[in-house]
Write a protein that binds this DNA or RNA. Structure first.
Length: 439
RNA sequence: CGGAGUGUAGCGCAGCCUGGUAGCGCAUCUGCUUUGGGAGCAGAGGGUCGGAGGUUCGAAUCCUCUCACUCCGACCA
């Protein structure tokens, strides 16, 4: 993409409504535009990042055996009356009346709807287990939206729902998602730590929040220092190996990690083995048994002919929140530092002297070569000052900057800058593609 | 939902107290000079001052109502 043609409205100054760093940078980097409190339009580069995160989440869900569906944003109130949540949910639910005076709502979550879909089609134990997910916009009419996309009213969420015959089977489904989540966040370039969460009336140990550590996080968290070097992704562990899954799950959940609400100094490691940090919740998984299946009649016939309410769990990842959360975890004073996997472009190519025949040609050639090699590149071909382009490129945080100017060209080289480390090195023009290939 | 603020050009702000018909920086457009970390000079365009009432000869400014947004707290992917 050529910068001169790209819709990328960057800002030099901080918009005053943005208090936290991710919100400031998302606005300044031209990723989003606020349209109401807690509601945002996604501009091209913001959408690109959002889609990349979404794609990774989707891939990892699929690998874990979940199957994608797509449920609507608008739901009929009747389903929620069945589960009893229509009254219980309160004002956070956006209620709508259609032209026939039917009560509708903009879905804040989808337990009722997925249960309705499930019960319509699944009648036998032979069809279990199942895990269905979708990635869809949700609306929760928060009392106080804030922090940009981190706590919007409208947000993109991946929510999966598992259906099993027994609590034991549900535990396996839960453990698969647990592993899948850790692999997902690792691929996204962030460290998310699973922390035991309140399970409510059901009890047990099957609810975890996944929390990214960042200085600007909302809650204080206490984590065992072991989290710094443990391999959370369990390379080689198959989702089909249920015994190994249980071992892995036990191992991970035995390493201390708790938010301040749950933190208990008695059971926590001594302070010299404990990290105290701040965190942002980006995922939450939950086993809730037959809460909805019982209320809504989602049952199957078992081997012995008996009717069994299915055991359910739900698993959420805040996809749009992750965009902000990742920036919170990865930035410096000059701007965003995108993890390679989700960067909107692989590299930025800066033409320091647009209009200069040699520079223009070198840039065009390299731009073409990089694209041919499969790289998605942003070429800053604007007629602007060097400082403008450097500052802008730092702000939008692409992993690599390739800087072409008259000085380098005399030597037949360009400068390659690593955004994360700040390291720069001169690289011969014909070596650049291979250098990037070894990222 | 309690508390505190803010709405004036695309963005950041001044002007308001003490009414006299709107200004600064950045951005944008034109020209020239520049060009390796957010350039210089000269010129230009752009605002029914959030909205509605009211007071007044006259309202961005005073009064009333209203809408929107932000921040702090309680609540949440």
């Amino acid at each position: 993409m050529k910068r001169s043609q790209y819709f990328l409205p960057t800002l030099k100054e901080n918009p005053k409504e943005a208090e936290i760093v991710s919100h400031r940078y998302m606005l300044r980097a031209g990723m989003i535009k606020q349209t109401s409190a807690g509601i945002y339009a996604w501009l091209p580069m913001g959408l690109k990042v959002l889609k990349k995160i979404e794609a990774i989440v989707r891939e990892e869900q699929n690998k874990a055996g979940a199957q994608e569906v797509l449920m609507p944003t608008i739901q009929p109130a009747d389903l929620w009356k069945e589960s009893g949540r229509y009254d219980a949910y309160g004002k956070e639910m956006l209620r709508i009346m259609d032209r026939g005076d039917r009560e509708m709502l903009f879905g804040p979550t989808n337990e009722e709807m997925i249960t309705d879909i499930f019960r319509a089609h699944v009648k036998s134990y032979k069809d279990l287990p199942k895990n269905l997910y979708h990635i869809q916009w949700k609306f929760r009419d928060e009392v106080r939206p804030r922090f940009g996309v981190m706590r919007g009213r409208e947000f993109l969420m991946k929510d999966a729902y598992s259906f099993d015959l027994s609590p034991e089977d549900a535990r396996i489904s839960y453990q698969k998602m647990f592993l899948s989540y850790l692999r997902t966040f690792r691929r996204l370039g962030v460290k998310a730590i699973p922390m035991k969460a309140d399970t409510g009336p059901i009890g047990g140990d099957l609810s975890h929040e996944f929390i990214i550590l960042a200085d600007t996080g909302e809650s204080e968290v206490y984590t065992d220092k072991k989290w710094n070097d443990v391999d959370v992704t369990a390379q080689g562990l198959s989702y089909d190996d249920t015994a190994a899954l249980e071992t892995y799950f036990t191992e991970m959940t035995n390493i201390y990690a708790a938010t301040d609400e749950i933190h208990d100094a008695e059971s926590a490691p001594p302070s010299n083995e404990l990290d105290v940090a701040r965190g942002i919740e980006v995922g939450h998984i939950f086993y809730f048994g037959t809460k909805y299946s019982k209320a809504m009649g989602a049952s199957v016939q078992n081997k012995d002919g008996s009717i069994v309410d299915v055991e359910m769990g739900s698993y959420g990842i805040g996809v749009s929140r992750l965009v902000g959360a990742i920036i919170e975890a990865s930035h410096d004073d000059n701007g965003i530092i995108w993890p390679v996997e989700i960067a909107p472009f692989d590299a930025g190519l800066i033409n320091l002297r647009s209009g200069d025949a040699a520079c223009d040609k070198a840039c065009e050639d390299l731009y073409q070569q990089l694209q041919d090699a499969g790289f998605d590149v942003l070429l800053d071909d604007r007629d602007a000052r060097a400082g403008d382009k450097f500052a802008d490129m730092d702000l939008i945080g692409l992993p690599y900057q390739i800087i072409i100017g008259p000085k380098g060209l005399e030597k037949g080289s360009a400068e390659v800058k690593n955004r994360a480390t700040g390291e720069t090195k001169d690289v011969a023009l014909d070596q650049i593609v291979s250098i990037l290939g070894n990222k």
